[in-house]
Simulated scan of single mutants.
Amino acid sequence: MEMFEWYMIRATGLAASLLLYLSVIIGLYSQVQKKRKQKVTISLFLHESLANWALYLVIGHVGFLLIDSYISLQWFEVLIPFNTDYKPLPMALGALSFYFLIMTIVTSKVRKKIGYQKWRKLHALNPILYIFVTIHGLLIGTDIQGAVLAAVNILPVILIGGMMLKDKPKLDVTH
C-alpha cells in the first residue's frame, strides 16, 4: 500500500500547489482589472474557490503523510515546524505554508468583521506563503525539475508586471 500513499502525497501536494498558483494569478489579474475599473466578481469568486480547494487538498496531503508507513511521520512532525529529523527545512516550510493558507482563507471569510484595511495587511503576507510553498516543493518534491518550477513561477510575474506597467498613467512632459 506504500505506493498508493506515495502517489497520493505527491498528487495532493502537486494539485494543491497548482490550484494555489492559479489562485494567485487570478487574484493578481483581478487587481489589474480593478485598476482598469472593470468588474471582478467572477475572477474573485474563482480566486477564492481555487484557494479553498487548495486547502482541501493540503489537508488531504497532510492526511496521507500521516498514514504513510514508509516515512512514518507523527502528527507533531508534520504540523509543528522544525520538529522532525526527516528533511526539517522543507517540512517546516510545508507546515508554515499550511498555517499561512489557513490564515489567508479564514481572514478572507471574515474580512468584513476585521475590517478591509486589516485584511489587506494580512493578505499582503501571501507572497510569503507562495515562496514557502515553492521552496517546499523544490526541496522535498521529486516530481518537477527546479528549472521548470522556476520558469512557471517567473512567467506570471513578468505578465502581471507588464499589465501593471501598461496601465501606469503616462507623464505629460510637454508642459
Rank of each mutant, 00 (worst) to 15 (best):
S49H: 08
L50W: 10
L50A: 13
A51N: 07
A51F: 05
N52M: 15
W53A: 13
W53L: 09
A54W: 03
A54L: 12
Y56V: 12
Y56L: 15
Y56M: 12
L57N: 00
V58Q: 06
I59W: 08
H61I: 15
H61K: 06
H61Y: 02
V62L: 07
V62M: 09
G63K: 05
F64L: 06
L65A: 08
L65Y: 04
L66D: 11
L66K: 03
D68V: 04
D68Y: 05
S69I: 12
S69P: 10
Y70L: 14
Y70D: 14
I71K: 01
I71T: 14
I71Q: 04
I71A: 08
L73R: 11
W75V: 13
W75A: 15
W75F: 11
F76Q: 11
F76D: 12
E77K: 02
V78Q: 01
L79R: 02
L79H: 04
L79K: 02
L79A: 09
I80F: 03
P81Q: 00
P81N: 00
F82P: 13
F82G: 04
N83F: 02
N83A: 04
N83R: 01
N83V: 00
T84H: 10
T84W: 01
Y86F: 15
P88S: 14
P90A: 12
M91D: 01
M91S: 09
A95N: 06
L96Y: 03
Y99F: 12
F100I: 09
L101F: 00
I102R: 04
M103L: 15
T104W: 05
I105C: 06
T107W: 09
T107G: 08
T107R: 09
K109L: 13
K109I: 13
V110A: 05
V110Q: 07
R111I: 02
K113P: 10
G115N: 10
Y116E: 13
Y116T: 14
W119M: 11
R120N: 07
R120P: 03
R120S: 12
K121L: 14
L122Y: 00
H123I: 13
A124H: 02
A124D: 13
L125M: 11
N126K: 08
N126I: 12
